[in-house]
């Protein structure tokens, strides 16, 4: 059982949420709950404000690419009650992922949402300053997506760990990333259309 020692059971959270915000929860698991992506801000605000859950701190925000959809994972922490709640927002639209920002609820989401946008290409509606964080504006891809450099596209699993190196040993299309655009100015050349799915829909 890989749940944390003080992790709240998903069922308990889901039941309470179902009563308060009907229709928001779309899946429950023993460790986490899954919520609709457009309701995630309401869910987190409710958990933040509720006395019994008291999710005072957003300790971690990250995302997982599941090929067909994205999961945005929120690890919430109650400091007073010392328990942890895991909320997953399911973003169905893999082409143009968008969900409301939780910055109005948690200031700590400011940089974490920027990081998710930068590396996974998920946009957050209502974020005050949604720019790329580590990479530069105009970088032609979102590296943490599974189709970046077409790794794992076929099997849906991490392929040959340790064999395919990043990114220069991609023998089939060695210029895949490097020639996808002028990385200094951010201008994309006309021939960069073959960047494929890695271009993302964020721009």
């Amino acid at each position: 059982m890989p749940a944390g020692p003080h992790q709240l059971l998903g069922h308990r959270v889901a039941d309470a949420l179902e009563a308060a915000l009907p229709g928001a929860v779309i899946g429950r698991h023993v460790e986490w709950i899954e919520v609709r992506s457009d309701r995630v801000r309401d869910v987190l605000r409710w958990l933040h404000d509720s006395e019994s859950f008291d999710a005072a701190q957003l300790s971690n925000l990250t995302s997982v690419d599941r090929h067909t959809h994205f999961e945005v994972v929120y690890h919430l922490q109650s400091l007073d009650l010392n328990h942890q709640i895991v909320v997953k927002a399911i973003v169905e639209d893999h082409e143009n992922p968008l969900l409301p920002s939780v910055y109005p609820v948690y200031k700590g989401a400011l940089l974490q949402e920027r990081e998710v946008y930068d590396l996974m290409g998920i946009r957050f509606d209502g974020h005050p300053d949604l720019r790329r964080l580590f990479l530069w504006e105009g970088y032609p891809a979102f590296p943490l997506r599974k189709d970046f450099l077409s790794l794992g596209q076929i099997t849906g699993k991490a392929v040959n760990p340790g064999l395919q190196r990043f990114p220069f040993e991609d023998k089939e299309s060695p210029d895949r990333m490097l020639n996808a655009g002028n990385i200094v100015t951010g201008e994309r050349e006309a021939s960069a259309g073959n960047a494929g799915g890695s271009a993302g829909a964020g721009h």
């Binding site: 590396l119 964080l133 580590f134 990479l135 943490l144 790794l151 040959n160 760990p161 395919q164 990043f166």
Partner: peptide, 20 residues
């Protein structure tokens, strides 16, 4: 402005075993 030391560890980690 950060990212001058970005090595994309999270992506690299997906191609290595847990111990690696």
């Amino acid at each position: 402005i950060v990212g001058y030391l970005h090595r994309s560890m999270e992506k690299l980690a997906e191609e290595r075993t847990y111990t690696q």
